[in-house]
C-alpha cells in the first residue's frame, strides 16, 4: 500500500515512516501542504496521513479544498488535537479517520488497512483470486491453501495488482507504488519481481500488455 505522510515534525515523520516500512507500506513523506499538493499531482497514493498544524497552513482547510477539487483518496488525520469538536471538524472536513497523537503504531497500521479495504469496497481483509489467497494485514499468501513466502516487494506488487482490479498499470506506476517517489531503481526491477511472482504463483497471475504495462491475470490459468 502506498501512503503519503504529511507531517512537519522530523522525528515523528521518521518514526512513522520506519513503522510503516516494518508493515511493508511504501511511504512518501512531505512536510508542507504545498509539497503534499505537488506529490498528489504527480503520483498515486492509496492513503494520506495528514497532520493538521503545518508550517504553510492549516491541514483542515487544505483537506476541505482537496475534497472540493474532487480528491477521493482516503485521509487519516493524525494530530495532537484530541478534543471531540476537533475530531468532528476533522471528519466533517473530509477526513475518513482520526487518530490523536500519541498513537500506537499497530493501531495506525490497522486503521490504514481498514481505510484501504473500505476504499476497495471489500468487506473482508483477505483477497481470494482463483487458487491464490492474500491477507494484506498479515502479509501472507496461500496457493491452493498452502502458504507461500514472498519478499516485501513481491507482496507489494501482488497487492498493487489486486487493488488495481484488472486495470492496466505502467512500469513507472508500479515502480512508484513499490519504491515510492524519490527512490532510484534499476529499469528492469519490476520485470524481475514479476518474473519471481509468476514462478511462485503461476504464469497467469500477471498479464503483460506489450508496450503498455501489466495487469492482474485471470483467476484460473
Amino acid at each position: 500500500m502506498h501512503v503519503l505522510l504529511v507531517e512537519d515534525d522530523e522525528l515523528i515523520a521518521r518514526g512513522v515512516c520506519a513503522g510503516l516500512a516494518f508493515a511493508e507500506f511504501t511511504v512518501d513523506h512531505v512536510s508542507t501542504l504545498s509539497q503534499a499538493e505537488a506529490a498528489l499531482d504527480v503520483f498515486h497514493t492509496d492513503v494520506i496521513i495528514l497532520d493538521l498544524s503545518l508550517p504553510d497552513g492549516d491541514g483542515l482547510a487544505a483537506l476541505k479544498r482537496w475534497r472540493r477539487e474532487g480528491l477521493l483518496t482516503p485521509v487519516l488525520i493524525l494530530t495532537a488535537r484530541d478534543a471531540v469538536p476537533d475530531k468532528v471538524a476533522g471528519l466533517s472536513a473530509g477526513g475518513d479517520d482520526y487518530l490523536p497523537k500519541p498513537f500506537d503504531l499497530d493501531e495506525l497500521i490497522a486503521r490504514l488497512h481498514a481505510l484501504h479495504r473500505r476504499t476497495q469496497g471489500r468487506a473482508e481483509s483477505r483477497i481470494q483470486h482463483g487458487n491464490i489467497e492474500f491477507d494484506p494485514v498479515a502479509r501472507q499468501v496461500w496457493k491452493d491453501g498452502k502458504p507461500i513466502t514472498l519478499p516485501r516487494r513481491e507482496l507489494t506488487l501482488l497487492e498493487t495488482l489486486f487493488n488495481a482490479r484488472g486495470t492496466l498499470l505502467s512500469n513507472e506506476q508500479l515502480k512508484e507504488r513499490l519504491y515510492g517517489f524519490d527512490t532510484e531503481v534499476e529499469s528492469n526491477a519490476i520485470n524481475v519481481h514479476i518474473h519471481h511472482l509468476r514462478r511462485k504463483l503461476g504464469n497467469h497471475i500477471v498479464e503483460t500488455v506489450r508496450g503498455v504495462g501489466y495487469r492482474l491475470g485471470p483467476a484460473t490459468p
Binding site: 515534525d9 518514526g15 512513522v16 513503522g19 498544524s53 495532537a80 488535537r81 498513537f103 500506537d104
Partner: peptide, 28 residues
Amino acid sequence: SDAAHELRTPLTAIKTHLQLANRSEGNA
C-alpha cells in the same frame, strides 16, 4: 490546546521510536 499539542508532539516521537526500538535490533 496549544500546550497539549506542543507536549504531545515530542511524546508521540518518544512513543513511536520506543515501539520501533522494541521491534528492531542492532544499529537500527
